[in-house]
């Protein structure tokens, strides 16, 4: 049961939840289409994940186990606050382990560990409209979606090719969902884009400031835009994670002193911790920072 007195289960009132639930069902029925909804005020500012929180509040039940990540990490301010918010208002169990969670609210990453059926991944979305920086008028972007008129985005990617010789967009990389709607995958690195396609878990997206909800059902094709002669590619690193030695996960660059020394570590803390527990070690295993991570 809820541990906070004076609030409904999971903070939102029942009528708001019903409205959001109906929007989620429409979003699932029309994959990639942005459903407008009556965004509610949440007790934290827009930009801190209010859209994702409203979706989570409408979906979550007493039996759920919630994981919240921010840039892959369970222990950053945003993730800790949101996890505590739902532990407090819904009394649900929380976890840092991807495999154990039934609901995962995320800011800007998809966990490295493949998600399973019956898990729900909820993205916090700042700007849901992929065409917004090309066409600022909502009335126009609505028409572009209605007519599948997506040439402008191909031109934008082509401008990258003309200027840099390759597609330089590295996050927020536009995708086509089920071969119909162009969708903003939220600012996840394009490294994560391939994970969205045919994922066994349900993916829900909530944009609080822009008041939009959209969804990708399980086993739905999600394709990143590209050209025949410039196929879609994900980032790769020459380095491996300094803590767990992983050479296949998304790495963050960490500056370690004032002399420009740096190390690369997994952005997904749960995945990295798991690997360390399994005995994998990285190049920095003898540094104090790695010991600190291992002790946790």
């Amino acid at each position: 049961m809820s541990t906070a007195t004076g609030y409904n289960f999971a903070y939102l009132d029942e009528q708001s939840k019903r409205m959001i639930r109906r929007a989620i069902l429409k979003g699932v029925a029309i994959p990639g289409y942005q459903v407008p909804f009556g965004g509610r005020e949440m007790p934290l500012p827009h930009g801190w994940g209010t859209g994702g929180m409203q979706v989570t509040a409408s979906v979550i039940g007493e039996a759920d186990k919630l994981k919240v990540i921010d840039q892959g990490a369970d222990d950053t301010t945003n993730a800790v606050s949101i996890r505590r918010f739902f532990a407090h208002t819904a009394g649900v169990e929380t976890t840092e382990q991807t495999a154990e969670a039934t609901l995962i609210q995320t800011r800007h990453r998809i966990p490295e560990r493949p998600l399973k059926a019956n898990q729900i991944l909820i993205y916090q979305v700042p700007i849901p409209e992929p065409l917004r920086f090309i066409e600022p008028r909502e009335s126009e972007t609505r028409k572009m979606h209605a007519l599948s008129e997506y040439g402008a985005m191909q031109v934008k990617l082509y401008e990258d090719v003309a200027r840099f010789g390759h597609i330089a967009t590295s996050y927020d990389y536009p995708v086509m969902v089920n071969n119909r709607y162009m969708m903003d995958p939220s600012p996840i690195p394009k490294f994560d884009n391939p994970k969205m396609s045919m994922m066994p878990a349900l993916q829900l997206f909530g944009a609080g400031f822009e008041k939009r909800i959209y969804a990708v059902p399980p086993f739905t094709r999600v394709e990143s835009l590209d050209f025949d002669d410039h196929p879609f590619e994900v980032q790769s690193w020459e380095e491996a994670c300094a803590i767990c030695g992983s050479d296949h996960s998304f790495l963050d660059e960490v500056i370690t002193d004032d002399n420009g020394s740096k190390m690369f570590v997994c952005s997904d803390t749960d995945y990295c911790g798991d690997r360390v527990a399994q005995g994998f070690v990285g190049s920095a295993a003898d540094l104090p920072i790695a010991e600190m991570e291992t002790e946790q």
Partner: peptide, 10 residues
């Protein structure tokens, strides 16, 4: 609702 979400998404 979760049952409805389950059948609508699968």
């Amino acid at each position: 609702f979760r049952a409805a979400l389950k059948v609508m998404s699968e």
